[in-house]
Design a protein around this nucleic acid. Structure first.
Lengths: 238, 238
DNA sequence: ATTTGCCTCCATCATTTGATGGATTCCTAT
DNA sequence: ATAGGAATCCATCAAATGATGGAGGCAAAT
């Protein structure tokens, strides 16, 4: 069910077809699967839920996507593709601008994008924080695009060797965004916000929280007590 | 299965007993349930997995805790109790100190505590980001202790009326910590860290990221473009 | 020794769930 | 018109899963 293309990236043939024709049954099922898996996670989702969301029989689902785990892997691959494309787009927008501006634009762009596709945040967090009972052959190369972001944020002098501290910073930033997207159903009622107010507040809080750390670091404005602002070199880098 | 005590807090009789005698079968089951539910989530966990972890029959589990959803609610209540107690302890430690110091101590304390009890972070994130297919009568009062933290961090002038922006900041901070705890299995191999190195790095990154925002805000060091550092008043507060 | 109450396990159920075979329908090329 | 293939659904299965009844065991009280 899974192959590797010329660039060594994982490829699922059925996924290619679904992306080529968004009206195809494959694409409809994939879209429904993204939604339901994103809401309930792998074990919380039944193939019947997905089939019923599309309005088809489960056997049709299996016909197009194989078994449940295959479909789930296709979904994960699919959302990572979307995310990677968006990151590339954002990178091209912010390229060359000063750091604070770069961060603010990136936060606005990524927040809007993810609020439009909340299942991306949901599924990524599910993968980070939960275990599944089946072993997945899937190994999305998170480290790689985390390093890419670190480079584009100018967090590292040596472009080929992104320090661990920089990658951790990127993880923290990405997670902070995902949290507010994924947690909307929980946080928004708790805060008494309407949706658009919530989105605006998320952007503001993220900027409030994330920008100062990097900007003051760059300016060297930190207080004397904070001299250890970067982490000592990691024992090994892979 | 659930009652309310004199202070209006939810109470499960069986949970009281389990806490009173940590060697009891009730306590053993609760502990195993925390672990397994924390790893696999509600739907990813089977009662047989928990029973087998304890080394007992599933009927014994049901005898002590009722059905699966009851046990899950007891677990959620239990970890929230632990978390609340720790927060109270931390509050008493940092009381009266300057802001930056308060934050650093709180981050160190909470990080150590949660790395010792990762299922707390796991379960809290599961509740924030995932849906279950059963309706829960459980309504842990997250807003309340979020407001408590905001007060103890001195994020609000009016102690009775914690602004929404302050509560969002607290959410962002708490989530940032939980993320690195829950995501250890995913992030640590990716970064090539040993466990103790990872923990140390998490603390450093959290301080790097979180402290400057609040300290520079307090000092009024922010650049002119950032005058809107607080969010407009919420439409309604509950 | 017997009773009593608590605890545990074995055997068993009913339902849910992932999965498939095979019949049927629909479309297209000939 | 029809042969062939693709797509869909119905019926059904086997395994997993949540749940329970009842027998047995054990310790303390009588």
């Amino acid at each position: 069910m899974m192959e590797a293309n010329a660039r060594g990236l994982l490829v699922i043939p059925a996924l290619q077809k679904a992306r080529k024709d968004p009206d195809s049954m494959k694409a409809k099922i994939l879209s429904a699967a993204r939604k339901i898996f994103g809401q309930y996670g792998f074990h919380g989702t039944t193939t019947r839920m997905i089939a019923s969301e599309v309005g088809i029989d489960i056997s049709t689902l299996h016909y197009h996507w194989g078994d449940k785990a295959d479909l789930y892997e296709a979904v994960v691959l699919d959302i990572h593709d979307d995310l990677r494309n968006k990151l590339i787009e954002v990178e091209s927008i912010i390229h060359g601008r000063p750091l604070a501006e770069r961060m603010k634009i990136a936060i606005d762009e990524m927040t809007d994008f993810l609020f439009d596709h909340p299942e991306i945040s949901n599924l990524i967090l599910f993968r980070y924080f939960g275990k599944t009972r089946h072993k997945s052959a899937l190994d999305i190369h998170v480290p790689e695009y985390v390093s890419d972001i670190a480079r584009s944020m100018d967090l590292c002098t040596d472009k080929r060797n992104v320090p661990v501290s920089a990658r951790m910073k990127v993880l923290a930033i990405m997670n902070a965004i995902h949290n507010f997207i994924s947690g909307e159903d929980f946080f928004r009622p708790m805060l008494g916000f309407e949706r658009d107010e919530y989105i605006a507040s998320v952007k503001e809080i993220l900027k409030f929280l994330l920008v100062p750390a990097f900007v003051t670091e760059k300016l060297g404005v930190r207080s004397q007590k904070d001299e250890r602002s970067t982490i000592s070199q990691p024992p090994r880098l892979r």
